[in-house]
Design a protein around this nucleic acid. Structure first.
Lengths: 228, 228
DNA sequence: ACCAACATGTAAACGGTTACATGATTTC
DNA sequence: GAAATCATGTAACCGTTTACATGTTGGT
């Protein structure tokens, strides 16, 4: 339910049309809270009905200029200061890490190496944004710089983690067997079933420890069933 | 569309019922890819129809034991190794950071300090999981340990970032005015409107730089409109 | 006999994505 | 006059969440 607050937040800077807001969403909030045109216009309607914004003026081609109301400002302020931000609960990368022992070690290693490379590449892009190279003219707002630094630090951390993890998978392979060759491109994928015995991602054996760990970076709350 | 693959991933370890899987989702995958009972049973039906799993046996109280098929294994393997993981696109915390200059500096500082504390607390919980204290018996699988380490590193990074950011907001306040006192609890929230001039989160002025930065940690792809 | 745990299913509502539809104004 | 841009709206679909509904088995 945060699209509402994103819209309020933008209107807090000053009145704007749906069209204006959409551009800001695409340009500035795309990686933080994306919204589609469809969604935006619908939400503006709802916000108007709820009295959190008003149509301040109507312009040339059906353009409606929205402005935040006092009630809207109050709601926005409440959300900013009192509502605990929820962490993203789903992470496809981490989900795959959970199942990493289901693919051949070399595939696992490749996967992690690719994660490392991706994080590193993104990290570099962000670094470039931090130090404007003369011909660049983007006066990052103070909060913009905070967000940028967040990105720089987190991508760096993920990069190092993935490299470390790739090495770890690598050495684990060397210990077991000398089998470093390719598995061929045989139809069958990796291991088939070798005894039906369980042992899932920490097994269906209870104890939520691993799960808690997995969500760590991107999620909240360790479900400490502790003993079970 | 990844619930499907999470289910396949779990079934890759061995056959299980919907009820079994649900427990695993709640205990192990809760922070990585949560699923509800409702969703799970529906998905198992769809997977069966698609031929990716089969009902291997029917047990006592209507229990259906599902097993992954060869086609299912192929699909799972493909998803693990060839499909690029999508990063979470929405982050409520980062969204608030974007609007941080809309609330009074002391509120902004408090917000960041709370983020720091939360990250730190979570970090500590994860650390406790890493070094089992004798009476603890959770044999973390290799991939479980990778995920745990991810969590430990990322929470640490976020903790430090938030502390740094809080300090930054703090010093910025000192520079401007001596006004450190409370704003009172007057109905009006922070600043009202002081001139109608724009200047949003890097403004509605174009250049997506800030936006790209914001998404950094949790998102992918810098939208390099570059010049515009 | 009762309760906890086992076990599966459906319906309604919500937020988000994609696609369709339409029209006005400015610029070349 | 054509094309780009401005500008708004609606419909269908999909995945997720919450709630409702129902029945069985094993242990005390």
């Amino acid at each position: 339910m945060s699209l509402r607050h994103a819209v309020l937040g933008l209107l807090a800077y000053g009145p704007a049309s749906g069209y204006d807001l959409l551009k800001t969403f695409d340009q500035s909030l795309a990686n933080v809270w994306p919204a589609t045109q469809s969604q935006l216009y619908t939400e503006l309607g709802r916000l108007t009905d709820a009295g959190l914004v008003t149509v301040r003026a109507e312009g040339p081609r059906g353009r409606k200029e929205y402005a935040i109301t006092d009630t809207g400002r109050e709601e926005f302020h409440h959300w900013m200061t009192e509502v605990e931000p929820e962490r993203p609960r789903r992470d496809g990368m981490l989900l795959r890490v959970f199942f990493l022992d289901q693919v051949a070690p070399d595939k696992a290693r490749t996967f992690l190496e690719r994660r490392a490379a991706a994080a590193s590449a993104y990290h570099d892009q962000l670094l470039a944004l931090r130090d404007p190279t003369a011909d660049d003219d983007h006066p990052l707002a103070a909060n913009g710089r905070l967000a940028l630094e967040y990105g720089i630090r987190v991508t760096d951390t993920v990069h190092h983690w993935a490299s470390w993890a790739a090495d770890r998978v690598n050495s684990a392979t060397h210990d077991k067997t000398g089998k470093t060759g390719k598995t061929g491109k045989t139809g069958r994928t990796g291991k088939a079933r070798e005894g039906e015995a369980e042992g899932g991602p920490e097994g269906a054996n209870g104890d939520g420890a691993t799960g808690a760990a997995g969500g760590a970076g991107a999620a909240g709350a360790v479900n400490s069933t502790s003993r079970r």
